[in-house]
Amino acid sequence: MAKLTKRHVESIAPNTKERILWDDELSGFGLRVYPTGRKVYVVQYKLHGRTRRKNLGKHGVVTADEARREAKLCQADVARGADPSAERKSRLRSPSIKELGERFLSEHVALHCKPTTHYDYTNLLKNVVNPVLGGIKASEITFADIQAFHLKRRETPYQANRGVMVLSKMLNLAEDWGLRPMNTNPTRRVKRYPEEEKKRYLDEDEQERLGGVLADMLAQGEISRYVFAAFYLLLLTGCRLGEIQKLKWDYVTRTHLELPDSKTGRRRIPLPPPARRLLDSLEQREGNPYVILGTHGSGHYNDLQKPWRKIRAVAGLDDVRLHDLRHTYASVAVMNGIDPFMLKEILGHKNLSTTLRYAHLSDDAVQKAAGKIANRLAGALGNMA
Score class of each variant (00 low, 15 high):
Y193A: 12
K310V: 07
S90L: 10
H150P: 12
R285Q: 14
R7W: 09
A275L: 02
G81W: 00
L259K: 07
L352M: 08
L100T: 07
E87G: 01
P84I: 06
V132A: 06
L111C: 10
R209N: 06
L322Y: 00
W308T: 01
Q305F: 12
I12Y: 03
F149T: 13
R209W: 09
A160V: 14
E206G: 07
Q305A: 15
A82R: 14
L259F: 05
Q305N: 15
R91Q: 14
R254D: 15
V109S: 10
A71K: 09
K263E: 14
K54I: 15
A275K: 07
V62H: 08
T142W: 04
L26V: 15
L235T: 02
C113N: 10
P181A: 07
G57R: 04
I338R: 12
Y301W: 05
P194M: 07
S85R: 15
V164L: 07
E70N: 13
H296E: 13
L279D: 11
P35L: 11
G101N: 10
L167S: 03
F341M: 14
A333S: 14
A369F: 03
N15E: 15
E175Y: 04
R326D: 04
E10G: 13
A174D: 09
R7E: 15
L214C: 04
S362E: 02
Q44P: 05
D216M: 04
K199I: 12
G221E: 11
K191P: 10
G60C: 04
C74G: 01
A138H: 03
Q220G: 12
E196G: 13
E140Q: 04
K198S: 11
E204A: 15
D24L: 06
S353I: 11
K368H: 12
Q159D: 04
G287P: 00
K198L: 10
Y41G: 11
Y201M: 14
I244T: 02
V109D: 11
M335T: 06
L278V: 02
R254P: 07
L234V: 06
P260E: 02
A359V: 04
I146W: 00
P95Q: 06
V128N: 10
E99M: 07
P260D: 13
L236I: 09
T63C: 06
K98M: 14
H118F: 13
A148F: 03
M182E: 13
E66D: 15
W22C: 00
D303W: 05
L26I: 10
P270C: 02
D319L: 10
Y45L: 05
E345P: 08
D145Q: 03
L111V: 13
G337Y: 05
I373W: 11
L56Y: 12
F104Y: 10
S106E: 05
W249N: 00
K46W: 08
E208A: 15
V227P: 04
R69A: 14
D24M: 04
G316S: 11
G211H: 13
I269V: 15
N288I: 01
L47F: 01
T354R: 08
R254H: 13
P14M: 05
A67F: 06
A2M: 14
M342Q: 14
V166S: 06
A174K: 08
L151G: 05
Y226K: 12
N185F: 10
I223R: 00
R80L: 15
V164R: 03
G81Y: 01
E70D: 13
H108L: 11
